Simulated assay, not measured.
Amino acid sequence: MKTLADHLAQYAAYHRDRRNIASHFIGIPLIVYAVAALLSRPGLELAGLWLSPASAVALAAGLFYLRLDRLFGLVMALLLVLALWGGALLARQPTAVWLGVAVGTFVVGWVIQFVGHYYEGRKPAFVDDVTGLVVGPLFVVAELAFALGLRDDLARTVAGRAGPTR
């Protein structure tokens, strides 16, 4: 099984242009929220929790992140809970509002991603490896941590394997 450094370095290899990386800080959260909202129907409330297909996907993703790294996994789990909460709120709206906002957010998120990849001059990572879809949100969190001077050892490993940013 791949390590955290393996996943991040493989994903980072498709993301060396700073404009592309910056676009991911906007596009990926929009996409994660939209997917959480779209998968929040059908759902049911049980003991104060909204259970839906989004819950199952978030649980699987959260376990994946925790397996890779405990601290990043906890941060990702918290972010997934926030996305689920927001998605559940939107899913309880009338169908036209739910679909309009969720699909619109999804499309805008992907447009931002593709603009970033235009600057990069490379296709998105998930085209070659579908796990890029789950690694993308983790990449954003890792890049934020690296920018804050956290996990320098991991940052050096990822940059060493993926190459310098430009």
Rank of each mutant, 00 (worst) to 15 (best):
L4V: 01
L4K: 09
A5M: 06
A5L: 02
Y14L: 01
D17S: 10
R18T: 13
A22M: 10
P29Y: 12
L30T: 11
L30H: 01
I31F: 04
L39E: 03
R41F: 08
E45K: 08
L46A: 14
G48L: 03
G48S: 10
S52G: 11
S52L: 13
A54C: 02
A56H: 08
A58D: 01
L59W: 00
A60V: 11
A61V: 12
L66G: 15
R67V: 13
L68Y: 10
F72E: 13
G73M: 03
M76S: 12
L79W: 05
L79Y: 09
L80W: 00
G86A: 05
G87N: 00
A88L: 02
A88P: 00
L89S: 03
A91W: 09
Q93D: 00
P94S: 11
T95L: 13
V101R: 07
V103W: 11
G104C: 01
G104L: 00
G104I: 01
V108G: 04
Q113W: 03
F114Q: 12
H117T: 05
Y118W: 14
Y118L: 12
Y118T: 15
Y118G: 15
G121K: 04
F126H: 05
D128P: 06
D129N: 15
T131D: 12
G132E: 06
V134M: 02
A145N: 09
A147E: 03
A147G: 05
G149Q: 03
G149Y: 01
L150N: 13
D153L: 10
L154D: 04
T157S: 07
R161E: 06
G163M: 10
